[in-house]
Design a protein around this nucleic acid. Structure first.
Length: 254
DNA sequence: ATGGTGGTGCGACCA
């Protein structure tokens, strides 16, 4: 069962990219973030034609998450955590007995801002949601754009990013609180080295310079940990014409 | 310390 996550940064613009990638990557389940698409305008026909059922919770201009799967969804929950936040960032469903939680974590803008404080509160609330999910679903996958690089080895230049947004200690502690549930960063079960990134800023020619961060994660519960047989980051998509600033990340579960 | 690019939508925002 191949489960993937991709922040597409506008599903309208990236639909051709998504269709092409679905053909070659052939995932069974896909979590999308930043669809920036109202539900009424979701490209259901194209994705149905590609062989996927869809559930989604979107909004105009900002945010928006969706799940695609080859088989049926059940127990779909969206935006159950609100925090006075109308943003569409949370979507959970069960597929083939595996609970999937798709997250688009608050970006936080800069350390010390109100948005940063909101990010930390949001992550704490999600941690509590995940704790609740785990009590009911021992086979749990939590994936998406976490907007946090877990460790310095996930950052192209840790000195440059020291205590900056996406890398600050409080953000990493908020992520650690999720990992302590426990959940496991699937990528690090199989790959230990630095230089693996999932996001490269559009600015400063970051991708050609490989100035990236690994902020898109697939976390798996203890019940799935030993069943992880492969992980990957499809970085080639970042070199495509008019790309998303994120690459798809995935895990293959036996 | 700042700016750079890209998406949305047509003016600023968000990332």
């Amino acid at each position: 069962m191949k489960i993937a996550s991709w922040n597409v940064n506008s599903l309208k613009v990236r639909l051709p990219h998504l269709e092409e990638w679905l053909k070659t990557a052939a995932p069974d389940v896909v979590a999308l973030q930043e669809t920036k698409t109202e539900d009424a305008k979701f490209p259901l026909e194209a994705l149905t034609a590609a062989g996927y059922g869809c559930v989604y919770t979107g909004q105009k201009t900002y945010n928006g998450v969706a799940l695609l799967a080859r088989t049926a969804f059940c127990d779909v929950v969206s935006d159950a955590i609100v925090l006075d936040d109308p943003a569409r960032r949370y979507l959970a469903a069960t597929v083939d007995g595996v609970r999937i939680v798709n997250l688009y974590v608050v970006n936080g803008q800069d350390v010390g801002t109100e948005k940063y404080a909101h990010k930390l509160r949001w992550m704490q609330a999600v941690r509590d949601m995940l704790a609740d999910e785990l009590t009911r679903h021992p086979q749990l996958v939590v994936l998406g754009d976490f907007n946090v690089a877990p460790e310095d080895r996930d950052v192209h230049d840790p000195k440059r990013w020291h205590e900056k947004i996406l890398c600050s200690t409080p953000e990493r502690q908020a992520l650690r609180a999720m990992l302590d549930l426990p959940l496991h960063d699937s990528f690090r079960l199989l790959e230990q080295g630095p230089g693996h990134h999932s996001w490269w800023d559009y600015r400063l020619m970051a991708f050609p310079r490989n100035w990236g961060l690994r902020i898109d994660l697939v976390l798996v519960s203890e019940g799935l940990r030993t069943r992880v047989r492969a992980v990957g980051i499809d970085r080639d998509t970042r070199a495509w014409d008019r790309p998303s600033d994120h690459a798809p990340v995935w895990v293959d579960i036996a």
